[in-house]
Design a protein around this nucleic acid. Structure first.
Length: 289
DNA sequence: CGAAAGTGTCGTCACATACT
DNA sequence: AGTATGTGACGACACTTTCG
């Protein structure tokens, strides 16, 4: 990704026509690009059935498409559409030597479906109810996984780091219990001779433990119940540990993508400013002649 | 050089949401 | 309703940087 930013540092607008073309261009072999208010039309020449572009694409957001060879960037304002004249065309994006495929579907209403290398959860099961989709849009910020997929970073997201169980953190609850003398008020419930106790941890957490009391008043924890609770808790902690790692990794990736996006947009801005400057100079030159 | 401050990482908990 | 999952928040710890 970092490499991508550096590559994008130079924008050369002279080779625009090498990759992007409009359907109305006179020659199929020398394509051109056309940006119409909110629609970018692409036509791939017959000789070039696929063209490589780099992209920072997010649905419903201003997006950027750039060629792998720094040739051209096309900015898509929010809510825009890419039209490709050839149905079933494919746009490959390159990031760090890996490919992401954007499949252009022939249906008029389906614009682009992105398919990362992982090919995981993007199977396009559109049986989601509109109600659910609406609610999702309104209430839940997209997960990093989703955002990354949208950004084309799915191939990175699946590149998991090695996971180690971290035995030093696997606190065993099978050790002798010593909570009985410090039972807080209201934390004890009894049902059928079996008591449920809420135990507070040292770091603000807690656990629910069940135990029974014998005839001598001593309490004991039924073995199978304790084992089951311990096992469940350890399993939950382990899963959560993994989930936290994954979440942090995705968050980092997400931030990296955002930083790359900023870099790309800054470069574009710089190029546009330069272009404007030279056009102004040209205009002043012609005016004085 | 040692203490304090800053930074990064990790495990855990709590909670919201998704799923079954 | 119960369970699974994702993620923000928190505290602990290790490491680095800064300052006197």
């Amino acid at each position: 990704m970092d490499g991508m930013v550096e590559e994008n540092g130079t924008t050369n607008t002279t080779n625009v026509t090498d990759v992007l073309s409009s359907p109305g261009s006179s020659s199929g072999a020398t394509p051109q690009h056309q940006v119409v208010t909110s629609i970018v039309q692409l036509t791939l020449p017959a000789q070039a059935p696929s063209a490589q572009v780099q992209s920072v694409i997010q649905p419903n957001q201003q997006s950027v498409i750039q060629t792998a060879s720094n040739i051209q960037s096309v900015q898509l304002p929010k809510g825009n559409v890419i039209l490709v004249s050839k149905p079933n065309s494919v746009i490959h994006t390159t990031t760090h030597g890996t490919l992401q495929t954007l499949q252009i579907k022939p249906e008029p209403n389906s614009i682009i479906s992105a398919q990362g290398q992982s090919g995981s959860d993007d199977s396009g099961s559109d049986d989601e109810s509109p109600k659910r989709k609406y609610r999702e849009m309104l209430t839940r910020r997209p997960s990093y996984r989703k955002i990354l997929n949208d950004l084309g970073g799915a191939e990175i997201a699946d590149n998991r780091m090695g996971t180690k169980p971290g035995p030093e953190n696997e606190v065993s609850l099978t050790s002798p219990l010593s909570f009985a003398p410090v039972i807080p008020a209201g934390a004890l419930q009894t049902e059928g001779g079996l008591h449920t106790l809420a135990v507070s941890g040292t770091t603000g957490g807690g656990a629910i433990v069940q135990y029974a009391t014998g005839q001598d008043g001593q309490f004991y924890v039924p073995g199978p119940i304790l084992e089951d609770q311990t096992r469940k808790r350890e399993l939950r902690l382990m899963k959560n540990r993994e989930a936290a790692r994954e979440c942090r990794r995705k968050k980092k990736e997400y931030i990296k993508c955002l930083e790359n996006r900023v870099a790309v947009l800054e470069n574009q801005n710089k190029a546009l400013i330069e272009e404007l400057k030279s056009l102004k100079e040209l205009y002043c030159q012609q005016k004085t002649e």
